[in-house]
């Protein structure tokens, strides 16, 4: 079966610095994968390559079997055009650390913008779908509220609704709870957990080790731009093989 996410020999440089040094990694349908590692290990960069918020020049990223960002024609690798990139980005949904809700729109409008402008849905259908997902994340009552009137946890839940309403093939979470007050973290993790249990394919970059262990089907540990170890959560957290992972787990509250 075609993996939903297929990363092959991915390399990325920032100027002279090589941040991703040959990543190979797959996510199958319904799988929940957590990427853990220290700051600077490249985990966020890897995630952002999956929806082309970061450019990569070597290697391939396939979402749902389709290579994104580049097309190979007659042995030449050419960058795909603007509109194509936009279309490919709609195949994934991303939830950001700083929520990034559109401040001039209500919660509902934040969710329906993509539905009407990208998916081309008629407004009434978009509202229906938007309400459905807002309810699913527990924010239906606040559908008309502006982001400035919502707490961090509430904003992040709206952000999740915004991403998932687009019916993406995979949901990408970029440290979704790192910017939240401790009291708010729980409500967002709960939302993510229930979506995972319903079979949503997910890739999460996270510091929440306990959550990663409980929810993931597979855990990937990154160090220095490479995948140092990957496997089942029980194995990685209970019996880490590489000394670096052992050191990392010691320093993170677990």
């Amino acid at each position: 079966m075609t993996p939903i996410v297929d990363v092959r020999d991915l390399h990325k440089r920032f100027g002279e610095l090589e941040v991703l040094k040959g990543i190979d990694f797959t996510v199958t349908e319904g799988e929940v994968v957590s990427i853990i590692g220290a700051s600077g290990s490249g985990k966020t960069t890897l995630l952002r390559c999956l929806n082309l918020l970061e450019e990569f020049h070597q290697g391939d990223v396939l979402i749902g079997g389709e290579a994104i960002g580049y097309r190979v024609q007659r042995g030449q690798r050419t960058r795909v055009g603007e509109r194509e990139v936009a279309r490919q980005r709609a195949m994934t949904g991303m939830v950001f650390q700083s929520f990034n809700l559109f401040p001039h729109m209500s919660a509902l409008d934040n969710v329906t913008l993509g539905l009407t402008k990208v998916r081309g849905m008629p407004r009434s259908k978009a509202i229906e779908l938007g309400d459905h997902w807002l309810e699913r994340v527990g924010m239906l009552e606040r559908r008309d509220y502006r982001p400035s009137q919502l707490s961090g946890g509430q904003q992040q839940r709206v952000a999740i609704a915004r991403a998932i309403a687009m019916n993406p093939k995979v949901m990408l979470f970029d440290e979704a709870t790192s910017a939240l007050d401790p009291e708010r973290v729980g409500e967002v993790l709960e939302t993510i957990r229930s979506l995972a249990q319903e079979g949503m394919t997910m890739v999460l970059v996270t510091h929440e080790m306990r959550f990663a262990r409980d929810v993931s089907d597979k855990v990937v540990f990154m160090e220095d731009g490479m995948i140092a170890e990957q496997g089942l959560p029980e194995k990685l957290f209970m019996h880490p093989e590489s000394p670096r992972l052992q050191a990392f787990l010691k320093t993170s509250s677990f």
Binding site: E82, R89, G93, M94, F96, F102, G114, K117, M166
Partner: peptide, 24 residues
């Protein structure tokens, strides 16, 4: 971050300007 959020849901850069950047 807001521009990236617009990109993440698949808006083209023109639409990102029109619905997000310009109003804000």
């Amino acid at each position: 971050g807001l521009i990236e959020a617009g990109q993440a849901i698949g808006l083209t850069s023109f639409r990102i300007k029109r619905y997000i950047v310009l109003p804000i």
